[in-house]
Design a protein around this nucleic acid. Structure first.
Length: 689
DNA sequence: TAAAACCTCGTTTTT
DNA sequence: CGAGGTTTTA
């Protein structure tokens, strides 16, 4: 294999195959290249492909990496296991979950189900879910699980938060409920393999023997449970190579432990460390600015990224009077860049929270700029989508009570809450599953015969389709089922408008289409349960993909941007309380992580970076004065061009730039004195209202 | 049981 | 301001 186009540290990372290895890979340092080359190098060294395991965080990263490795090394690379932590865990569980007392076929629950299960557990413990937020309880449970423990109550009740006690009390019930319906959650996918390895050393040995070479991408985002799993797999041969950048750890709110990377040496003693500090993405101006922001973080592995591209346009810092003006200006700049010849897919607009995309979309549309909003809730949050999936779940697994309760009266078929409440009580007494109880509703004395009849019809419906679905023809049957229950009609009827009804119908069609794609690919192996589990592990995979058909400007959150790059990047809303986001009451703000987030955003830009803010923003219907982000103050002035918008640009998009010196003078000045750009004949807009 | 008024509450989200 | 959930009413 040709290693000549790798720089010395990269080459060293590729060639160091034995023993623990930490690759500190700064932004844009060719991290993926190192991993793929390293895999190919191992293959060249006659390491069998099936002995190599590489884990990433996203399916996208995994499949892209696999593609590249196969492209480089050919067919022999197909045997390399390249998957996400969660998919790998699911593979282990497929074979061994019964060792923990679960059924062989298990389902993977999503966040919605988790909350429902927590709610129910709280109810069982007679804890009011208005007093304690079930989502917060779930967060605590998940935190505990992903750090390899269980929710603890504060010892002796000393000034502990009550919600922690709630999590502690609810956790066993929650876990039991999962087991009862033969399901696991995302955290279990990581935690259970470790538990199985601990209880059954022979299983652990089987895996450790097979995977002699292990690689982990985005190591800075691993949590404690993932580290545990990694140690189990690697502690015998110790050929563990982790690649990451502590400066890009932006998921600690989800349990990622920066310490995993900061303490690598003590976790894997005797390991080697390689630093990749040459950046192949951005010019030096962008890197200097980004470096000066991230430098302020204490407790990091000192790195200073540098680029061979020394020059570059200065960073544009733009202040707009309002959020709307900010969006309008950004849209104009985007349009101008495109008119000047930059391809749309070389442009991104990044923001801290999804809600910020609204105005941007509006003005991009106005200028006929093609764009794509990545992320946001959208599709799977639609009620109808959830409903259809709940039907799938019940058909695949009638023990799934949460889904069962969801669909039992959608569309309305006269089975109300009271009926289900009584039935649940009876099922508990009789110690049978709810679905079985529904079939035997006639035996329940407290139920009117009408209700029992309707329940019987529903059970018959599900049973009938259950048998049918077992024989395949999934998407066709789904259409049949939905037609029979008049799902689409009633969804349309419940929609507030005709357009909303169409959207619902479209969404349902989308689900069926996704099932169809899956079915075509899997052929005879296709089953509802595997489809559902795949859906949980990779929500995007079967979506239609018009992404690359034409260039589009990308709009997404800073979180979503990690690992990506564009020639021109806009970061909008660079303001206090938004970019260093102010956590809500109760949540501890993490300024260091916000700083990393800012760093991640800045380092996405190859050629030019534009950071904007609004002097005023409407929040909850009230106009609020805004102050510039503290991160802006950390960027050396000589790296910046300041633009102060005084009023709405009229006519063709114009930029009002101050001279360099007045820019210096006015930079980060209080927004109470709006500066009218030199030479601009536009009125200044008063902000003192 | 279902529609209508009412209230409350706003992060990020690879899996 | 607006979505979503909850309580009120027919």
């Amino acid at each position: 294999m040709d290693l000549s186009h790798l720089n010395p540290p990269q080459r060293s990372a590729v060639l160091t195959t034995e023993g623990p290895l930490l690759v500190l890979a700064g932004a844009g340092s060719g991290k993926t290249r190192v991993i793929t080359h390293r895999i190919c190098h191992l293959l060249d060294k006659k390491v069998p492909a099936r002995s190599i395991l590489a884990v990433t965080f996203t399916n996208k990263a995994a499949s892209e990496m696999k593609e590249r490795v196969v492209h480089m090394a050919g067919q022999r690379a197909l045997g390399v296991t390249l998957s996400t932590f969660h998919a790998f865990g699911a593979e282990v569980l497929k074979e061994h979950l019964s060792k923990l007392g679960w059924p062989k076929k298990f389902a993977i629950v999503d966040t919605g189900d988790q909350i429902a299960l927590v709610r129910r557990a709280m109810k069982e413990r007679q804890i009011d879910d208005k007093v304690f937020d079930s989502r917060k309880v779930l967060t605590l449970i998940s935190r505990a699980k992903s750090s390899g423990t269980e929710p603890q109550a504060k010892p002796d009740g000393e000034e502990g938060e009550d919600i922690e006690l709630v999590a502690h009390l609810v956790f066993p019930l929650y876990q039991l409920a999962l087991k009862a319906q033969g399901a696991v959650d995302f955290d279990d996918l990581i935690v259970f393999p470790s538990r199985i390895f601990e209880k059954h050393p022979e299983v652990k040995e089987q895996f450790a023997k097979r995977f002699r070479y292990i690689m982990v991408d985005e190591y800075q985002d691993t949590n404690k449970a993932q580290l545990d799993l990694l140690r189990h797999l690697g502690d015998s041969h110790r050929n563990v190579c982790v690649v990451g950048d502590d400066d890009q750890c932006i998921y600690s709110w989800r349990g990622a432990e920066v310490r995993n990377i900061l303490d690598f040496e003590s976790l894997f003693p005797g390991g080697k460390e390689v630093r990749l500090e040459q950046n192949y993405r951005s010019n030096q101006v962008i890197l200097d600015a980004a470096n000066s922001v991230i430098e302020k973080n204490p407790d990091r592995r000192a790195k200073r990224m540098w680029s061979e591209v020394k020059g570059g346009p200065r960073i544009t810092l733009c202040t707009a009077p309002s959020e709307e003006d900010e969006a309008r200006w950004v849209a104009s700049e985007v349009k101008r860049a495109i008119v000047e010849g930059l391809s749309s897919d070389e442009i991104a607009i990044l923001y801290r929270v999804n809600g910020q995309s609204r105005f941007l979309e509006e003005f991009l549309r106005e200028r006929e700029v093609r764009y794509e909003v990545i992320g946001g809730s959208e599709f799977f949050d639609l009620r109808e989508v959830k409903d259809v999936i709940a039907y799938f779940r019940v058909i695949a697994n009638p023990k799934d009570e949460i889904s069962l309760l969801r669909i039992v009266n959608t569309p309305a078929r006269g089975i109300g809450d009271v009926t289900m409440e009584r039935l649940t009580g009876w099922a508990l007494e009789q110690k049978v599953h709810l679905f079985e109880a529904m079939g035997r509703a006639a035996e329940v004395e407290t139920l009117p015969k009408g209700a029992a009849e309707k329940l019987g019809e529903f059970v018959a419906l599900i049973e009938r389709y259950r048998k049918a679905f077992n024989k395949g023809n999934l998407s066709h049957l789904t259409r049949e089922l939905l037609a029979e229950i008049q799902f689409i009609d009633s969804a349309r009827a419940s929609a507030p408008s005709l357009a909303a009804g169409d959207r619902k119908a479209k969404a349902v069609a989308h689900v069926i289409q996704s099932l169809e794609v899956y079915e075509k690919r899997e052929g005879k192996k296709a089953s509802l349960l595997t489809y559902l589990n795949r859906l949980s592990l990779d929500t995007k995979s079967d979506e239609e993909e018009p992404h690359h058909q034409a260039g589009r400007v990308t709009l997404m959150t800073l979180h979503g941007a990690k690992g990506l790059e564009w020639k021109l990047v806009f970061m909008v809303g660079v303001e206090e309380d938004l970019l260093p986001h102010s956590g809500m009451q109760g949540e501890l703000p993490n300024p260091e992580e916000e700083r990393r987030l800012c760093y991640v955003g800045m380092t996405r830009a190859r050629d030019r970076l534009v950071m904007t803010r609004a002097a005023t923003r409407i929040k909850r219907g009230k106009e609020l004065a805004r102050t510039p982000s503290r991160f802006l103050a950390d960027i050396p002035e000589q790296l910046c061009d300041v633009v102060e918008l005084a009023a709405i640009p009229v006519g063709p998009p114009t930029v009002k730039e101050q001279s360099f010196f007045s820019a210096l003078r006015d930079r980060l000045k209080s927004e109470k004195e709006p500066v009218v750009a030199a030479g601009s004949g536009l009125d200044s807009q008063s902000t003192d209202r």
